[in-house]
Computed example of a mutant assay.
Amino acid sequence: MEAVKAIYEEKLIQPVKGKRILITGGTTGIGRAAAHLLARENDVLIVGRHQAELDDALRDFQQHDQSKGKLVGKVADLANPEEIDGLFAYADEALGQLDILVNNAGLAFNSVLEGKYEDWAYILNTNLLGYLACSRQAIDRMRTQGRGHIINIGSMSADVQEKDSSVYVATKSGIQGFSESLRKEVNELGIKVTLIEPGAVGTDMQPREGQAEKQEKGEMLKAEDIAVAIYYCLSTPLRCDVVEMQIRPHLQVI
């Protein structure tokens, strides 16, 4: 009876309201969908590499959402440590404090048999070192208030390790290991760490042709599906950690 009473009386889902949130890779795809969902009742800062995409994401939100929060943005290249410093200095001004970091910025790349050292270095700096650096900046701010939540968007590629994607797989495998270890380092500070690993998602990282048909058939996810998953992870009670979540299209065989 106590368990049944708890279900009816306790707020098992905590509304995500009044939070200060930074989303990297927030101008397109998963990051953009998450920003538009969360900014309805929170203050959200998105960052992307291109001004045109940032302007479009902000304009689209302003046209369609009657928001109780706000959405602002900044252009920055997270492969550059100086621009990461500038991003968080801007976040301090725009948000005042930081409650949630969604590490999502990432670039596609194929095999190590393609490209050269400088190409691989840029991908690793963006996809992996960018996560590390942004997490450190966020933790420095979150620890002063004794709470916070870092969500790392990884990929099922870390487990599948598909052929002809060795550079990308290396970065996503690194994110997986980093997330698992980081949680053990910061949970006593009151900071949560969640790793979300999607399967195939209809974003700019996938060929655009045929995405709608695959989504209709259940062979591909929408970016909004991952945005909802992010919201769920943020909405659980303080006693709960969603440590790792894998989300696959219904008919994607992995």
Rank of each mutant, 00 (worst) to 15 (best):
G115E: 06
G115T: 10
K116F: 00
Y117D: 04
Y117R: 09
E118V: 06
D119E: 03
W120G: 05
W120E: 02
W120M: 01
A121V: 09
Y122R: 14
Y122P: 00
Y122S: 05
Y122D: 04
I123A: 03
L124K: 01
L124C: 09
N125G: 00
T126N: 02
N127T: 05
L128K: 04
L129G: 00
G130P: 01
Y131L: 05
L132C: 07
L132R: 03
A133I: 08
C134T: 13
C134M: 10
C134K: 05
S135H: 12
S135L: 12
S135P: 10
S135W: 09
S135M: 11
R136Y: 13
R136E: 15
R136W: 15
Q137T: 04
A138R: 06
I139M: 15
I139T: 10
I139N: 13
I139Q: 13
D140Q: 14
R141M: 07
M142E: 08
T144Q: 03
Q145P: 03
Q145H: 09
Q145A: 07
G146M: 02
R147E: 05
R147T: 11
R147W: 06
G148H: 00
G148P: 06
I151A: 02
I151L: 07
I151E: 03
N152K: 04
N152D: 01
I153K: 05
I153P: 04
G154Q: 01
S157V: 05
A158D: 08
D159H: 14
V160E: 15
E162R: 11
K163M: 12
K163P: 01
D164S: 10
D164C: 08
S166I: 09
V167D: 12
V167M: 15
Y168T: 11
Y168I: 02
T171Q: 10
S173M: 11
G174N: 06
G174S: 11
G174I: 05
I175Q: 02
I175A: 08
Q176H: 04
Q176A: 07
Q176M: 01
G177F: 04
F178D: 09
S179L: 02
S179G: 01
R183C: 05
K184V: 08
K184M: 12
E185N: 10
V186N: 04
N187G: 02
E188A: 14
E188D: 12
G190C: 03
G190S: 05
K192H: 10
K192I: 08
T194W: 01
L195M: 13
L195P: 08
L195H: 11
I196P: 07
I196C: 03
E197S: 12
G199F: 13
G199P: 09
G199I: 06
G199V: 06
G199L: 12
A200S: 14
A200W: 13
V201N: 09
G202M: 05
G202V: 02
T203W: 11
T203I: 03
T203P: 07
D204K: 13
D204H: 14
D204L: 10
M205V: 03
Q206C: 06
P207F: 13
P207A: 10
P207G: 13
P207M: 14
P207L: 14
G210A: 14
G210L: 14
G210C: 14
G210Y: 15
Q211G: 03
A212Q: 15
E213D: 15
E213R: 14
